[in-house]
Design a protein around this nucleic acid. Structure first.
Length: 704
DNA sequence: CTAGGGTTAG
């Protein structure tokens, strides 16, 4: 161990090298001059040759370069250095542990820590923060607790401050991010002295375990007690504000940041952008974003995801295109945001482009990215592609399975969805509430009433999950669609929780399918109490009246809507072509190729009439004349979009439409015939589900 | 030691 610190030998001084300045001792040489892997190779070789590597200080420095300082260096390199060390000391272990955690391999960090203890290298006050961080990342409470015990054994857990403070802070952070908020709080309360770092540790832990209220509450406490805080604190609090819609506090912090001249901190400003976006102030967020002098990937991604989460998907895509004009490289998190926007918009082409981009850039198919890709394909009606992604994903979680199950259900493959649910359970992946929403949805779409009842029961009995309003809604849907309207009504009345508007709306919709006037009237009454301005509900009942010939009642309801100034949501259908998203509205008068579209629509309607199409005008405006009705029906947004698709794509291409409302009876009927006459597959995604039209029939079996 | 961005549900 007693290798002396040497002078730098003459050989390196004269050799051609990228190192321009030669310091006279290794620390400077290795840590400050070593910027690339090439430098590192050279120095490593030299240190081995001169046996300097066996000087612990030298080894530490070299490892620090390899593991921490040179960005984007894979871990293989520091590992190979580390493995050649004869007796690595605790500092070397510390560096390796830190590096593993930094490079997202906390598992390896823990393994190394165990190895370290096994080889009787005593961990020190620098080791513990590193390893505890790894535990935090992994939510590895058991390891964390063992480490806590070790800390006490080595006497580092005293309540004093100084370097012990780091250890205690890290311990607090570990407990908080493992969900042991109480323990963290207990440790925190027991500390005689707290630094800003202590507060920040508990904040970051709380954030990682989703305890947003605590962060805001503690911060208010800090303000009251006039405890000093720093920029890290503010970032934590802003994150919490975003989740809790705490716009006032967020704005207060914004003012503080401006007043103290902290706008130069990009992380802080990015947090402000995120806070505003999550609180629904997307435009304020954008203004701040535009003001930022330097924007990195995270800043761009924050803004893009801000748009997606605010349902402003087109702006999300536009901003992404703008991002591509810069030299900032998107990463998989960016892709996830973009994909979710593509999925909502039904922009399959753009989504596929994202997929190929992901493959080209060899981005890691992380669980989240894979799941987003699956979601895209499923929401665009491409079941095959989704399953392909699913099979290729190296690891999957509940999200992935849930997305698949729900997606299959929506695409009319209820039985297949249930098969996947069963294999998920076999693989010991624990389903959650949302998973059951998917499974029950599958039962509903496949008309499997008894199976649905069974899953609903097993949810509580076997999995211990209390059903929430969504799952009750699914049951209402299952019963209602199968025509068991009275039973569904009873079910609602016996629910242990208050029914919401969605529940009554679901029942109302099944009343339309089965023409149950009384319960429909009752349902509407209840919906209106909860959500009086939702036009679709009035229209549903009005349609029911019309379908049983009670036109006056239907008209009365429409007038009631007018009196209450409830606007009908205009139908809107979207079709994507060459990456451009074309939006059509019912009775469209804004699309640039208007004349062409209307001509094409008329042609299309003529052709299908010859094939036996008869307009069904029960769903049309009731105050219109019969002729007007027919023409207004033929100008429904999806007919315009389909006609546009027919003339603008080559024969045989699948036409994909995304619609904001439910497909009406007439459009559904017309589209079936169109698929036959024009020999096209047409995939329509409506508000609730997919319709795959092919050879004159639809995947939903006319049951929607 | 402590800091910002991401996926499912009607």
């Amino acid at each position: 161990m007693d290798v002396p610190l040497p002078l730098v030998p003459a050989k390196i001084l004269t050799a051609p090298t990228t190192i321009t300045q030669f310091p006279d001792y290794p620390k400077t040489l290795i840590l400050e001059q070593c910027k690339t892997i090439k430098d590192l190779n050279q120095i490593h070789a030299h240190l081995i040759k001169t046996r300097l590597i066996h000087n612990p200080r030298v080894a530490e420095n070299l490892l620090e370069s390899a593991a921490i300082l040179i960005p984007n260096l894979p871990m293989d390199y520091p590992i190979s250095i580390f493995e050649k060390l004869e007796e690595p000391n605790s500092a070397c272990y510390n560096l390796m542990i830190r590096a593993f955690t930094l490079k997202q391999s906390p598992n390896e960090a823990i393994l190394l820590f165990n190895e370290m203890c096994g080889r009787s290298v005593r961990p020190d006050e620098f080791t513990f923060p590193c390893i505890l961080k790894a535990c935090s990342r992994l939510h590895a409470l058991m390891e964390g607790e063992q480490i806590h015990a070790l800390i006490m054994k080595y006497g580092l857990g005293s309540k004093g401050f100084g370097s012990n403070g780091f250890v205690l802070n890290a311990l607090i952070g570990m407990y908080a991010s493992c969900g042991e908020v109480e323990v963290a709080r207990h440790l925190f309360d027991g500390m005689s002295e707290r630094s800003v770092g202590t507060w920040n540790s508990i904040f970051s832990g709380y954030i990682r375990s989703g305890c947003w209220e605590e962060v805001v509450g503690f911060f208010r406490e800090m303000l009251e007690m006039e405890v000093g805080f720093d920029e890290v604190t503010l970032v934590c609090v802003l994150t919490a504000c975003g989740r809790l819609n705490e716009i006032e506090l967020g704005e207060w912090i914004h003012e503080y940041v401006v007043a103290k001249g902290l706008k130069g901190n990009p992380t802080l400003v990015t947090s402000l952008v995120g806070m505003y976006a999550k609180c629904g102030r997307v435009d304020t967020a954008r203004r701040l974003f535009d003001e930022m002098p330097r924007r990195d990937v995270v800043a761009w991604t924050t803004m893009i995801s801000g748009y997606s989460q605010a349902n402003r998907h087109r702006e999300a895509l536009e901003l992404f295109h703008e991002m591509q004009k810069t030299n900032i490289v998107p990463n998989e998190v960016t892709m996830v945001s973009i994909l979710s926007s593509c999925a909502v918009l039904g922009a399959l082409e753009t989504g596929k482009w994202v997929h190929s981009y992901v493959m080209k850039k060899r981005m890691k198919l992380t669980v989240t990215l894979g799941t987003s890709l699956m979601d895209l394909y499923l929401k665009c009606g491409s079941v095959g592609n989704a399953i392909e992604v699913f099979r290729k994903m190296p690891s999957k979680n509940v999200f992935s399975w849930t997305v698949l199950i729900q997606g299959l259900a929506n695409n009319g493959q209820g039985k297949r969805a249930i098969q996947f649910f069963n294999s998920m359970v076999e693989k010991k992946i624990t389903p959650n509430n949302v998973t059951f929403t998917g499974v029950l949805c599958a039962c509903s779409h496949a008309g499997l009433v008894d199976e649905g009842r069974g899953f609903f029961v097993s949810m509580t009995r076997e999995f211990g999950i209390e059903p929430e309003i969504e799952q009750y809604g699914c049951m209402v849907d299952i019963l209602g669609r199968a025509g068991l309207i009275e039973e569904a009504y009873q079910f609602i009345n016996n629910m242990p929780i208050q029914p919401n508007a969605v529940i009554w709306r679901t029942l109302l919709a099944s009343c339309r399918v089965h023409k149950k006037v009384e319960i429909a009237e009752e349902s509407l009454k209840n919906v209106v109490k909860l959500e009086p301005m939702h036009s679709g509900d009035y229209i549903l009942l009005s349609d029911i009246y019309a379908s049983v010939g009670r036109l006056e009642d239907a008209l009365r309801l429409r007038n009631q809507m007018k009196e209450r100034v409830i606007k009908e949501t205009p139908g809107c259908s979207v079709i994507e072509m060459n990456g451009i998203i074309h939006e059509f509205f019912s009775e469209d008068n804004i699309h640039p190729d208007l004349v062409e579209v209307y001509n094409a629509t008329e042609n299309m309607m003529e052709k299908i009439k010859l094939a036996g199409y008869v307009p069904n005008t029960t769903g049309a405006r009731l105050d219109a004349e019969e002729d007007d009705k027919e023409s207004s029906m033929s100008h429904h947004s999806e007919k315009l979009a389909i006609a546009f698709g027919l003339i603008r794509t080559s024969p045989g291409t699948t036409i994909r439409i995304t619609k904001n409302l439910r497909v009406c009876m007439d459009c559904h009927n017309a589209t079936k015939i169109i698929s036959n006459v024009f020999n096209r597959e047409i995939v329509v995604r409506d508000r609730n589900r997919f319709h795959h039209f092919k050879d004159g029939s639809c995947s939903c079996n006319d049951y929607w």
